[in-house]
Design a protein around this nucleic acid. Sequence first.
RNA 1: GGAGAGAUGGCUGAGUGGUCGAAAGCGCUCCCCUGCUAAGGGAGUAAGGGCUAAUACCCCUUCGAGGGUUCGAAUCCCUCUCUCUCCGCCA
Length: 426
Amino acid sequence: MIDPKLLRRATSDVAANLSRRGFEFDATAYLALEERRKTLQVDTEKLQSERNTTSKQIGVETAKGGDPAPLIDAVTKYGERLKNCQAQLQAVQAELKEIELDLPNLLDDSVPEGNDESDNAEIRRWGEPAQFDFETHDHIELGESLGLLSFEAASKISGSRFAVMRGALARLHRALIQFMLDTHTSAHGYQETYVPYLVQDHALVGTGQLPKFEEDLFKTTTQTPYYLIPTAEVPLTNLARDTIFDASELPLRFVAHTPCFRSEAGSHGKDTRGMIRQHQFEKVELVQFVVASESARVLEELTGHAETILQLLELPYRVVALCSGDVGFAAAMSYDLEVWLPGQQTYREISTCSNCTDFQARRMKARVRNATTGKPELMHTLNGSGVAAGRALIAVIENYQQADGRIRIPDALQPYMGGIAFLEKI
RNA sequence: GGAGAGAUGGCUGAGUGGUCGAAAGCGCUCCCCUGCUAAGGGAGUAAGGGCUAAUACCCCUUCGAGGGUUCGAAUCCCUCUCUCUCCGCCA
């Protein structure tokens, strides 16, 4: 959520910022509503104040043994007016809240202008795409021909956008996750965390998936509905909900491996083949809670933590700054890590690292006590995939393929593979 | 699933209709005293919101959440949630 005070005071600036995303904010309508809110709130609070003082007088009068009847009459009279005012105020406030919850975060000034993916700005590259002296294949051909990967098997059970992995490939997938968790906990100072995969709506409102993006989520039909998490960012970031941290406790770093569930509504026809876009995938997620002044620096740091994984796996990648039209709802700025996929001869997203500034913190009341003033302030939250396990697996398969169709195990993963050096046909 | 107990400020814990946002203690901050330390004395110490140039006054809201009764609710009534104890079941 954007600071409502800022929204009132600098409405046109906010509208200008949001328009960079292609988001149209009706400032006039908002301000009209806001004007009504102000009048109603001032009136309501004035009436409440009068009621309170008169009620107190009634108490005093009664205690003295006097006759409180005239005072009771007086207070009863504006009881009706108060009720009326309160009801109107509540309605207007609800309307404002609804608007505010639908507004994306303000973009950082450094975010490059652009409409979509194609306008993202490349920041740096690491590694050289390998030159193969044989005809390369994509992960689907490689995995299926080894008998280790089957979309057909999955479709019998669950339909499209699911995969079944077997044997050493399933193990390699698990190895990737173990390796990532181990790296982030031991080298980067994150605390390993186990979190619920089913969450209630308020958690998703906190991180920004709701109310706007409900169609992207899977929801249970139980009496209290649960949503399947689309990313561990949701449970991890909500750890800060309704909390005031001591300044000395920050920064806090959490890492979790979870499955992620996405309905992929609206992406029909996109990446329909293979494991790139599934309803269910595994991801290792990084989340940090920091004081406001630190978040810009920490975004660089966190991005570096995700990069380390790709470097240790020796997978070529590039870092791009998302353009104004491509930055996610809750983020002020984001970097994407794009890994080289020989099968597609292109770089594909494998991680997004975002600085959400105080946007999520405001929604979930996540605060830090300022060490010098002693006052609670909103913290800044950051998150990034470190990295998506399914896509990392694709990258390993395609980048480590051999002329004979086998897959070499990256050095970094060998300790997790029980002495196997290659994925072979079964 | 059954039976019971509870939910109050950073913590412990009083408070069953009228200046209660809330006693007391602990903790914390500041000051005083004591040549250090210990002990002692005093003051302060919730969050959110509104108004505002203001992080100054003032005002509103909040005692698990949501409704209700009342001129007035931490206190009475209803619903829900969560926690704890015992029993049952169970990976």
